[in-house]
Amino acid sequence: MAEKLITRNLSAYFGQVRALNDINLAFPENRITAIIGPSGCGKSTLVRCLNRMHEVVTGARVEGEVILDGENIYDPAIDAVGVRRRIGMVFQKPTPFPTMSVEENVAAGLRLNNIAQSRAERARVVERSLRQAALWEEVKDRLNRPGISLSGGQQQRLCVARALAVEPEVLLMDEPCSALDPISTARIEELLLELKANYTIVIVTHNMQQAARTSDLTAFLNAGDLIEFGETRQIFTNPARRETEDYITGRFG
């Protein structure tokens, strides 16, 4: 397993407050890594550091390194927008652009990244992305309808399609199913398993069964520290650390 993305002594701050303490993690290529931990433990902050989104918050800063294919994405010579094209993100609540159609939503990333496209090329990318996100069959006859006219689960898959349109290498997902019903959740999870053949996936989740079902590796964070990182089946059947055990068995706090 090649290590696609590596954090080295990664710390994150909000002003004076330190939210992450010296995180050292390696995300293998074509694997799903789940990040679990109680609210406020730094899960979302960690994924936001992975594509340089943490720094967009006023007063927020990052220390340490995030290495993508051997290159530190925090190197001053590296362009943050380029990083975000290679490392896509799907958020907790579906966030389609409200004024755009289904098709425009999917193609939005191409425009933002100044990827020049002919009409035909664009249509091809839209179809490919929607197929990858397992949404094509459901929306192919209403590509010009507003993105927000879709159901919640469809909107979330639309956001996955939008993230995939720019052909990222890593896909970050921050609680992608927390606003979805169990059927939509199952479709997203199935989608993740299909996508991992081509992508490196990092998923933040509060739903431990979701982490157990979908991920290959699990990282447990608490109070900004990485407590344990290992194979998911090990973490959920016989974790090495007491804190992990207490968390996964519901003996927390």
Binding site: N238, E245, T249
Partner: peptide, 10 residues
């Protein structure tokens, strides 16, 4: 009902 894990599961 509880989807036990870790030592509880065992």
């Amino acid at each position: 009902l509880h989807q036990p894990a870790g030592s509880d599961l065992r």
